[in-house]
Design a protein around this nucleic acid. Structure first.
Lengths: 280, 280
DNA sequence: AGATATTTGTTCGTATGTATT
DNA sequence: TAATACATACGAACAAATATC
């Protein structure tokens, strides 16, 4: 049964769309939910292929564009990726951290967030994540941290380089959090770091070089690496706490209230635009 | 210029779609991004109306279903709501916390999360959020908290009621977090609470009554209310910390590793299904 | 490398549902 | 109630991408 019985030009006559009931819910959403249920029910892992457009059309007796909308919805939610060509179609996908952050930033867009808010959290979470990372980091990880420090181990030539150094400082913490095995903690930390990278207000702050602070930051980070290598959890915690307090004081001395700016999942660090729709 | 010059049945001949460049990006995504940019550029607040389908079609020289897909994408992201009828169309919307959590849970679905992970965070964040809430809560807030406690101020008749009591205990913390003016902190706490409500493993745990723990929990919460009313921040912090430690011990004694289950934004507390696509 | 087949991507006329006036 | 304005849905035709031979 081909939805419309291949009714040529006449069209309207035998419309025949049962459409169970039009109880508020719209067709594409119903289909999207049905597909989701299918994914969980069959325990489809990332990589599994879903039925293709054609088949979904008949399966749900829906039109092409309706099915497409449903698929689009799933794509935006980061649950599937759609490919063209032979053997193409929708494949189940694991949502990227990047997309999760973009989506979340859309929510925060309407909220008011201050730098103080962010640091109130970082003061608690960064020490925790550092201790957690300590238990998993390896030589390669330490090398990555060392390489990052090298980026800001000298005076910046201009505001541009100063900004890049601040980004690298945040990358340092990004890498640390990456080694934590607490996925929630890691995500929260990295999200806060991402916010600091993208917030419009911070952008201006980062252009100013603060030699004293930068020196102190590097000192803290080197001590941190040593403490992590030594497996000294209390020391890791206290160093990171002090590091955060210092960073907070610096940031607070500049700006207080800011409006959340959007993160864009595609661009590098553009301070404004809403979080991404589709990967790449 | 009407997209296709109202070319009747001939159709294909003068296709004339410039399509700037087909560099990987697909049309609906381009349009969605363009609309997003429009929203930020013009600073459209929630409630503002976007151009309607017809106009967007001409504006982007795109077909109906293409525009529709773009709009669908924005809808899933919680940025607009679409209404039918005269004066209908897409209106800018503030993303709901509920949807933000659903979307985020889709990401966590593929990660491994343990109860210990959740409580490691709660131990830090709940005391913080309680202190933060203390500064904003009013008489009405205290009344809400008291009413919630009443739900579990007695022995449950069965596993069903025991479960409802556990939900109410989490609601207590939900309300506390609601009064914090740190939107990030509040969101993180409430998200953790939501996870505890929806995780499949927890579902089983909640069916067992633990009279001793419940009594102790109530005692803590009553002390907490008193400390908040008195504006005693250190006391609020220490009570909540102890409360969390106790709760963690209880939960850990039951289960360790769990797979993240999805949150569903529509249903009440169903332990499995992927987070919602569209509101309501 | 080029041709071909497969499958998604996009358009557009038509028809219908739904909310406003 | 009717008219109107708008979204919602269908599906055939065509375009573009991509895998396979």
């Amino acid at each position: 049964m081909q939805t419309g019985d291949a009714n040529p030009a006449t069209g309207p006559s035998a419309q025949g769309r049962p459409r169970s009931l039009s109880k508020g819910r719209k067709r594409p959403d119903e289909i999207a939910e049905a597909i989701k249920r299918m994914i969980v029910a069959e325990g489809l892992a990332p990589g599994s292929r879903l039925p293709q457009e054609r088949e979904l059309m008949t399966q749900f007796s829906a039109g092409k564009s309706t099915v497409r909308e449903a698929l689009k919805s799933l794509e935006v939610q980061g649950l599937v990726r759609i490919r063209t060509g032979p053997g193409g179609g929708a494949v189940v996908e694991a949502m990227s951290e990047r997309r999760a952050m973009s989506l979340l930033s859309n929510y925060l867009f309407t909220q008011t967030i201050s730098i103080a808010d962010i640091y109130a959290l970082r003061k608690q979470l960064e020490p925790m994540v550092a201790v957690s990372a300590m238990r998993n980091i390896d030589a390669a990880g330490f090398k990555r941290l060392g390489d990052i420090i090298a980026v800001y181990d000298h005076d910046p030539r201009d505001g541009e380089e100063s900004w890049r150094q601040r980004m690298a400082e945040l990358d340092f913490h990004m890498v640390v959090a990456e080694y934590s095995d607490n996925a929630l903690l890691s995500f929260f930390c990295r999200f806060l770091q991402r916010l600091l990278k993208d917030l419009a207000i911070c952008h201006d702050i980062y252009k100013l070089d603060q030699p004293v602070l930068r020196q102190s930051g590097i000192a803290h980070q080197r001590e941190l690496i040593a403490a992590m290598a030594a497996g000294d959890a209390p020391r890791v915690r206290s160093i990171m706490t002090e590091h955060m307090i210092e960073a907070e004081m610096h940031m607070l001395s500049l700006e207080a209230q800011i409006e959340t700016r959007f993160l864009n999942e595609d661009d590098a660090y553009p301070p404004q635009s809403i979080g991404g729709g589709t990967e790449r």
